[in-house]
Amino acid sequence: MTEVKTQADRKAAKAHKSPIREWFDSVLFAVVAATLIRWLFMEAFTIPTPSMENSLMVGDFLFVSKLHYGTRTPQTPLQVPLTHQKIWGTNIPSYSTAIQLPSYRLPGFTHVTNGDVVVFNVPPKYLNENIDYPTDLKTNYIKRCIGIPGDVLEVRQRAVFINGKPFPTPPRSEQKYFIKTTEVLDANFFRKFDIVNDYRDPSQPTENWKPLEQYNDSTKSAAMVGYSVNTTEDVIAKFKEFDWVKGIEPMSDKAGETGAGIYGTPTFNWNHDNFGPITVPKKGATIQIDAKSIALYGPVIELYEKNEAVAVSPTSITIGGKAITSYTFKQDYYFMMGDNRDNSLDSRFWGFVPEDHIVGKAVFVWMSLDPNPANVWNKIRWNRLFRIID
């Protein structure tokens, strides 16, 4: 008797896959799905430096929304999936620049606003290992947006002003203080106040630590020691309650002093505690070209506006061989600062963030691991899990 197979039987036999083929298809589906989610909706990041403490701490794992501001279309399509600049654990580039596409931003449901915590591709080449990465592959930074396009920004003795009005200080932001005490304090003491990455003591002198001999006041004694700490106002208020704390002094630069590496210097005598006023570039806004505007906006015109044959000198700018007397910006820009104001490499040092460098909005911390826990049981910071970022 001859066996007769129906069309359904033949399709079923054809559809049967080997275990290896099933495994490969599953992995391929997972990679494609993860890549699409990472590009269109949300991406995971971790915090490697203390520049946003105490709002975000080293070891925080967070999700960043691409939907808020609208995701960017890929500029560099030839790239190993789920990588950024290099293949995991190697120095091998994970991408090819053989194809570079124009980048567009899909519609989002909001715009970057003052106070948003934003992930972006940091613009300067020297912050990208001096490699001229494509825009979408530049190093990711996270800071708080202080100034939006058209804002006039100024920092006066640490206090930020936007358009002449005080900008609210983030509640968990940190600044540098010098604490004089008759007690010797150790790392375990500072850990109780979430001061892990930002304190210095006399046994470990650094450029941030000043010996007490530099503080000539009536409270100084031979038995007194001093600590430079970056912490919040709330913690400083608690320190003031200790009777063995003999003095707390803010450590800040004076107005008129020129800070090393500050954006706009030496044309302007600014430092990281006293900066501006400066106007954040806005798409369609026109500036007149002179020595002062060149110091502030020359790098923008040369590096981020996609102009060809730009030459910038301290007194002139030429585009395509022709000197210009005015310039109209082609895109919006933003001014970013870390919440740890005295330990943050931000727009006060390298200038503005172009709109096409914006990656997304940080929304919440889903995991937090202490990189230097007091013991293994404290490795996870339980009080930071699923914390909304504000």
Rank of each mutant, 00 (worst) to 15 (best):
F109P: 01
S368W: 08
I317P: 11
F161M: 07
Q175F: 08
T325K: 13
A33R: 06
Q331F: 03
A30E: 12
F268I: 00
G150V: 08
F161N: 01
I37R: 02
G261Y: 05
G247H: 04
S103F: 00
F239A: 03
A291M: 07
Y334C: 02
N130K: 10
E249I: 14
M251T: 02
S203N: 15
V155G: 02
K14Y: 06
V376M: 12
S96V: 00
S203T: 10
P166H: 07
V365T: 13
L369I: 10
P205V: 11
R105G: 12
D9W: 07
G147Y: 02
V112W: 02
V245E: 04
T325M: 04
A30N: 09
H68G: 02
N372I: 11
S65K: 04
I287R: 12
S18N: 08
Y104K: 15
T76D: 08
R105D: 06
A291L: 05
P168F: 07
N130W: 10
S344M: 12
K282P: 01
P134V: 12
V363L: 02
I47G: 10
G320Q: 04
T2A: 07
W377E: 10
V122N: 07
V353K: 06
Q7H: 11
T265R: 11
L78R: 03
P202G: 09
V112E: 03
A222V: 07
G284L: 12
S221N: 08
P77R: 14
Q7W: 13
T6L: 05
Y304R: 04
S252L: 14
E249R: 06
N128Q: 10
D201H: 15
A374R: 09
G89A: 11
R21S: 13
I99W: 04
P50V: 04
V353Y: 04
A291V: 15
A295H: 03
K292C: 07
P277A: 09
G261I: 06
M52F: 09
T46G: 11
E129M: 08
I99N: 02
G298V: 10
W244V: 06
S326Y: 03
S293C: 00
P266W: 08
F239I: 02
K143D: 06
V160E: 11
R387N: 06
L345Q: 14
K11P: 00
R191C: 09
K5G: 10
L296R: 14
Y199H: 07
F167T: 04
W209S: 13
A223Q: 15
W23R: 01
V310Y: 05
K180T: 09
P277D: 13
K361W: 01
R105H: 10
K240M: 10
A295P: 06
N216Q: 13
I278Q: 13
I146G: 01
V80P: 11
V58I: 11
L127M: 14
Q100R: 12
W366E: 10
W377D: 14
N163S: 12
D132E: 15
V353N: 09
D342P: 01
T110R: 06
A187S: 15
Y69T: 05
L137V: 04
E302D: 13
P124S: 08
P314A: 05
V112I: 05
Y333E: 05
N163C: 09
V312F: 12
G150C: 08
I148P: 09
T181S: 15
T139Q: 11
R348S: 10
L62T: 04
K125R: 09
N372D: 14
